[in-house]
Design a protein around this nucleic acid. Structure first.
Length: 194
DNA sequence: CGTAGGATTTTCT
DNA sequence: GAAAATCCTACGG
């Protein structure tokens, strides 16, 4: 079997909903720690729930940069959350989009992940956007970094998976938009789908 | 099983 | 001043 193929920036330079779906089953690694992506959410420039909806600010500047890079933001003043910057139309300039990485199934660097998370409960290690960043030690330092270069790598999925779809979590505006995607049957989701 | 409150940065009103 | 793309702990049924 050949090694899993790293996804290049071209993979991310497409419509954000497409990328969010195709990321399910892909593998995210950061400095030797990571696992299979099992839950994502899409956010785009026409979306009242997105950080980029109101235009560029110091916090969301990375989302207005090139696709295939990280956007890391502080959530509720406490946690870090990781997004993959996705496609936008250059002619529109001030548009941006991103995929929030909500949960992964940890497979690599388990010992280090358990230490950072303070638990050995497999289902609580990386099941939630704040947990993912704590487990992989991703912080503001990674904001704007390219996803196709170390210490990041995102590997193409080994096979297709059934996808479940639902409304996004923790938002009030555009709360009905079904842009949350998950791997069917996974026990590593942040929350079950309806 | 459920609900409630606190921690604390960034943005907007 | 309040809300936010969250998580943890405590306490009640």
């Amino acid at each position: 079997m050949p090694d899993a193929q790293p996804l290049t920036q071209a993979f991310f330079a497409r419509p954000v909903v497409t990328v969010a779906k195709e990321l399910i089953g892909c593998k995210l690694l950061f400095a030797g720690c990571g696992g299979i992506i099992v839950e994502t959410e899409a956010y785009d420039h026409e979306d009242p729930a997105s950080h980029c909806y109101g235009g560029r600010t110091p916090r969301n500047a990375s989302m207005f940069g090139p696709p295939g890079h990280a956007y890391v933001y502080r959530s509720y003043g406490i946690h870090w959350c990781l997004n993959f910057v996705c496609g936008r139309l250059p002619k529109h300039g001030e548009m941006a989009s991103g995929v929030l990485i909500r949960a992964i199934e940890p497979t690599d660097g388990l010992e280090l992940i358990e230490e950072r998370r303070g638990t050995r409960d497999r289902r609580k290690l990386c099941s939630g956007p704040g947990r993912v960043c704590q487990a992989l030690n991703i912080t503001k330092v990674q904001d704007g970094q390219p996803l196709d270069q170390p210490p990041f790598s995102v590997l193409r999925r080994a096979r297709r998976h059934d996808i479940v779809i639902g409304p996004r979590i923790g938002i009030t505006r555009a709360a009905e938009t079904p842009w949350r995607f998950g791997m069917a049957g996974s026990v590593f989701l942040s929350r079950p789908f309806a």
